[in-house]
Every structure is written in C-alpha cells, then in structure tokens.
Amino acid sequence: MSDKLTFNFDVDGEDFTSAGQASVQIKRNLRQLGIDSDTIRRVSIAMYEGEINMVIHAGGGTAQVNVCENCIEIVLKDEGPGIKDIDLAMQEGYSTAPDNIRSLGFGAGMGLPNMKRNTDEMKIESEIGVGTTVTMRVNYGG
C-alpha cells in the first residue's frame, strides 16, 4: 500500500441520532484493509468524537480519512461558529454543549482531549464565524 487511499464523508448536522455513521464506516474500511485493531480503535474513537462535535456545534461538516503507508490522517472540516479559545476547549470538563446534548450522553467536555489522547498529532485551526478544521494523525506499523 504505497499510494495514499482516501475516504470522504459528509457529516449530516441535522440529526444527532445519525452522528457517528462515518466513523462506523471507516472502522469497517480499515478492518478490510487489514490495519491492526489498536490503530483502528484509536482512529475511530478520535473520528467519532470529532464527528459528534461537528454535529453538536457546527451543523455538520466533512470528514476525510487518508490511509498512508505508516499513518492515518483524519481531516474534519466544518463551517460552524469556530472555537473562541482553543486552550480552554482542550481542557477536560470544559464544554459549551447545550443541556439536551448532555441528556443524550455527550457534552461532558471530554471530546477534544480524548481526540488528542488517541492520536499522535492533532492540529486545530479555527476562525470565528468561518469554521474549524481539525487534522489528526495516527502512526502505525513502521
């Protein structure tokens, strides 16, 4: 697998119940490619958290997963309100999610830190009123 393999998904922001579909699909795709289960789990947890974030905060967005020879890159892009203070958003327990999201089992302020924990690199680019792009990288094999 020397060439990069790319998967693209639209993340629907309308309906919270469908959030996570792309992550379930990518998990299957990676399994078919024979990627080891630990790597798959890290990628899918990070992407799932990101997907949930896009649905809660940004009205959806797009997800791109690039499978390279030694790493998997996940790019989550939205045109939502942007993140005011990224350092604050990275703190465990800090959340701006509305209460109804909490009653659905999310919004505890664990998403971004958990994405960072499960990936080897994570970059957040955000502009107020324009949107947010989160790029994550999980190294494997090698």
Binding site: G20, Q21, S23, V24, K27, I45, Y48, G105, F106
Partner: peptide, 15 residues
C-alpha cells in the same frame, strides 16, 4: 440506562 443509537455506535468504537 441511556437509550439512543449513539450507545451502540460507542460500543462499536470501543470493540
């Protein structure tokens, strides 16, 4: 005690 599709997706993510 939570019942919604995200429970299953979470379980899938966690193997």
């Amino acid at each position: 005690g939570l019942v919604n599709p995200q429970v299953i997706r979470t379980a899938v993510m966690m193997d």
